[in-house]
Structure formats: structure tokens, C-alpha cells
């Protein structure tokens, strides 16, 4: 297991390097410059390029990125917060933490609600509750997040005044409720659907029939035997979701005026803020790689039969 993890970390570093290279050359292949505006003259752009070292050959610029990253220096923003170190924007202004907080809360809610709902729906297959849940989850998967968020905002913040329109830094419970619900609703529904399917699959297995024949209580059949097996698809789904839930927070953060990182993932490309593009991509990639590792290890815990390496069985 330890050897496996070390190998994975080595692979992760190589992956990050490749990601950096691809991102760097892709973003430089896009026409335009961070300094282009309606009113900037070619001379202005030339001056600004010289000021920030963008006039150097690409390969030199790339080398500088790699060297600086190894030193822990993520560069300074060219456009979005001109002159501010990218590290400050991402970490010191609390943006990353805020997006993670929002994302994790939404994820926890999605898991905590989605898995039981899926189990119940599967167990009461064909019943009224199953039918109702099927409608709700289908709507939940179909409705775009920004529509749901706007609806919740208008209804609960403006009309009923139960929550603030500006959620800000999410320091109290009331300002968290709407963004977290808006964000997790899709995932809750998706997980419930996924769970229902895999649970159905599990409870039709022979070992469940055996357990039932032996007189084991329904409750423990579901919780002890079926649940564990049916969790695999959900866990597989969670890996990529973590990345999506953090980058996808853009709409939610914008709708509820939360000063998170979401906006920076989108706006940095549009405004050609190269250091932010690089930094957000690398930080996010690192996060996804770590989460994938965690998911792989989680497989092993859920189902000991799964081998992480070919040698280890």
C-alpha cells in the first residue's frame, strides 16, 4: 500500500508537469493579450509585455514558470488584480478556502441526503415514495444550477427575507443555506439515482437472498450487506465531482455574491491573466490527483477484494 502511494505521488508530479506544459502552450496559442482593451495601443501592449516579461521566448517563459513553481512562487496577476501575487489571491484572501468550504458542504449534504434517498427508493421500488423521488431526482438532474439558485434567491432572500441576498464569506449558518442547497441539489439527485440503481442491482444478488432466507432483518441486510457493495459506483463518481464542485462554484458564487475562487477559473482565461490560468489549473489538478488517490484507496477499504497493484494480491 505504501509503495503504491509513493508511486502514485511520483506519477502525480509528472502529470502536473505535463498539465503545466499543455496549459502553458495552449493559453499562449490563444490570440489576444491581457493588456488588450478597446483603448490600448500596440505601443502600450508592447510596454506592458516588457514589464511582465511576456516579450521573452515562450520556452524561456515556461522554464521560468517551472522554476518559480518549484520555489513556491506562483507569479503576480497581470489583469484581474493587477500586481497582486497570485498566491495571495488564491490562498491569503481566503478564496480557495471559501470555495472548498462551499464545495465540501455541498458534497457532504449531497452524500448525506443522496445515499439514503437512493436506498429508500430502491428498497421501496415501485411504491409511491419511489415514484415521487424519481420525479424529484429527474427534475434535479435536469434543472440548471443557475436557475435553481436564482429561484431560491428570489423566493427566500427577497420575498420571504429568510436569508440574506449577499452570502459573503459564509460565516453564519443563514448565509450558507441557500448556496449550499443550490450547489448540492444536482449532486444529491444524481447520487440518489445512482444509488438506487446500484442498490437494486445489489439486493437482487444471491447473497442477499441467502441472508433473507436465513431471516436477517431488512435493516441489516441493507446496511450491512447491500450498501457496501452498491457504494462502488457512487465512489467512482465522487472523484471527478470534487473537481466539478469546486470549479463549478462559479455560478453559485456569482449568484450569492460569495468572494470565492470560482470566478477566477473562468475569468482568467477570458482576460488572459496567464499566471492565474497556470496557478488555478495546477492547484486544481493537484486537488483532482489527490482526490483520485483517495478514491482509489477508498475502493480498497470498501471492497477488500479490489487490488490496487497487480503484485499486491
Amino acid at each position: 500500500m505504501i509503495v503504491y502511494i509513493i508511486k502514485r505521488i511520483a506519477a502525480a508530479i509528472a502529470t502536473l508537469l505535463v498539465i503545466m506544459a499543455v496549459t502553458f502552450f495552449l493559453m499562449n496559442a490563444i490570440p489576444g493579450s491581457p493588456f488588450l482593451t478597446e483603448k490600448s495601443t500596440p505601443k502600450q501592449i508592447e510596454l506592458a509585455n516588457a514589464k511582465y516579461g511576456l516579450d521573452k521566448p515562450l520556452i524561456v517563459q515556461f522554464k521560468n514558470y517551472v522554476v518559480n513553481y518549484l520555489k513556491g512562487d506562483l507569479g503576480t496577476s497581470l489583469k484581474m488584480q493587477e500586481g497582486t501575487p497570485v498566491k495571495n489571491i488564491i490562498f491569503h484572501q481566503g478564496k480557495f478556502a471559501l470555495s472548498i468550504k462551499l464545495g465540501i458542504s455541498a458534497l457532504v449534504l449531497a452524500i448525506a441526503v443522496g445515499i439514503p434517498l437512493g436506498c429508500i427508493a430502491a428498497y421501496r421500488r415501485g411504491g409511491a415514495l419511489d415514484g415521487f423521488l424519481r420525479v424529484v431526482t429527474t427534475v434535479g438532474v435536469a434543472i440548471p444550477t443557475f436557475v435553481l439558485a436564482t429561484l431560491l434567491l428570489i423566493l427566500f432572500a427577497v420575498k420571504l427575507e429568510w436569508a440574506p441576498t449577499i452570502s459573503g464569506s459564509l460565516t453564519d449558518f443563514r448565509s450558507c443555506v441557500l448556496p449550499v442547497i443550490s450547489m448540492s441539489f444536482y449532486y444529491t439527485c444524481y447520487i440518489a439515482k445512482l444509488m438506487r440503481t446500484s442498490m437494486l442491482d445489489a439486493i437482487n444478488q444471491d447473497y442477499i437472498r441467502t441472508a433473507r432466507a436465513k431471516g436477517v432483518k431488512t435493516r441489516s441486510i441493507v446496511l450491512k450487506h447491500a450498501l457496501r457493495n452498491s457504494l462502488i459506483p457512487v465512489i467512482t463518481y465522487l472523484g471527478p465531482v470534487i473537481a466539478g464542485i469546486i470549479t463549478g462554484s462559479f455560478v453559485i458564487e456569482s449568484t450569492f455574491a460569495i468572494p470565492g475562487l470560482g470566478k477566477y477559473y473562468v475569468q482568467c482565461v477570458l482576460s488572459r491573466d496567464y499566471p492565474i490560468i497556470m496557478a488555478t489549473t495546477v492547484v486544481l489538478s493537484a486537488l483532482v490527483i489527490i482526490m483520485n488517490l483517495v478514491v482509489d484507496v477508498a475502493y480498497k477499504i470498501v471492497d477488500p477484494r479490489i487490488s490496487l497493484t497487480t503484485k499486491e494480491d
Binding site: 435553481l148 443563514r174 448565509s175
Partner: peptide, 20 residues
């Protein structure tokens, strides 16, 4: 869907100022 999701909300007091 909105009212379904909202039923989980426990906030009840009116707020007129931004909390944050």
C-alpha cells in the same frame, strides 16, 4: 423542486441587512 429543496432550510427569522 425549489420548494422541495427549501423545506430543508431551517432559517426562519426575517433578515433585512446583509449578514456578511
Amino acid at each position: 423542486a425549489a420548494s422541495e429543496a427549501a423545506s430543508t432550510s431551517e432559517a426562519s427569522e426575517p433578515v433585512s441587512e446583509a449578514a456578511e
